[in-house]
Computed example of a mutant assay.
Amino acid sequence: MISKDNAEHYVWGENCDGWYLINRQDMLVIHEKMPPGTSEKRHCHAVSRQFFFVLNGVLSMELEGEMHDIKALQGLEIPPKSKHQARNDTESPVEFIVISHPTTRGDRSDLP
């Protein structure tokens, strides 16, 4: 059994948290938490397809220039080669699951 309580933890970006639920070459599943007002760098993945599923809060996702507010119990697929950026534009933390197939390791290109 794996959970946020026993998974490998890391800190990324602007004091955001991540927990590796599955960490394999063919699949990466991460539970992430973003404090209010935080964001990641805009980027894309050459091969990896991702699915973001919000557990609580609202995740603002810019995908190819279009904004999507993903609410609790909603998800959004990010196809390979799609430019995107996750942000928390609210005053509350947001928690979500990111599923990547295959892993995003070595497959990310940051954009200006």
Rank of each mutant, 00 (worst) to 15 (best):
G13T: 11
T103L: 03
L59T: 01
I97V: 12
V29I: 14
G65Q: 02
A72Q: 12
N56D: 15
N88I: 00
V58D: 01
G13N: 11
A86Y: 06
I30P: 07
I2Q: 14
G13A: 08
K41H: 12
I22W: 03
D110M: 04
N56Q: 15
D89H: 10
A86L: 15
E40P: 05
E91R: 06
Y10E: 04
E77N: 07
D26P: 09
L111G: 09
E77L: 11
N56H: 15
R87M: 14
E8P: 10
C16L: 01
L59Y: 06
H84R: 00
K41T: 13
S92F: 10
Y20G: 08
G18K: 02
L73W: 14
Q74D: 09
L55I: 10
Y10C: 07
V94Q: 00
D69T: 12
L76Q: 08
T104D: 06
S60L: 10
P36N: 03
N6G: 02
Q50H: 07
F53M: 12
H84M: 06
L59I: 05
E64T: 00
R108W: 10
H31D: 13
H43A: 07
G13D: 08
T104N: 11
M67F: 12
L111R: 04
G65V: 05
C44Y: 15
I78A: 01
H101C: 15
S48M: 01
S92I: 11
E77H: 10
V47D: 08
H9G: 04
W19F: 14
F51R: 13
V54N: 00
R24L: 13
R87P: 05
W12Q: 03
V29W: 07
P102N: 11
P36D: 03
T104Y: 08
E95H: 02
S3V: 02
D89I: 10
R42T: 13
V29Y: 01
L76C: 05
N88P: 00
R108H: 02
H9W: 08
L55F: 01
L55Y: 05
S60K: 07
S100T: 06
R105T: 10
D17L: 03
K4E: 10
H9M: 05
G13H: 02
E62L: 09
R105W: 10
R87C: 13
V11I: 13
D89T: 06
N23Y: 09
K33D: 00
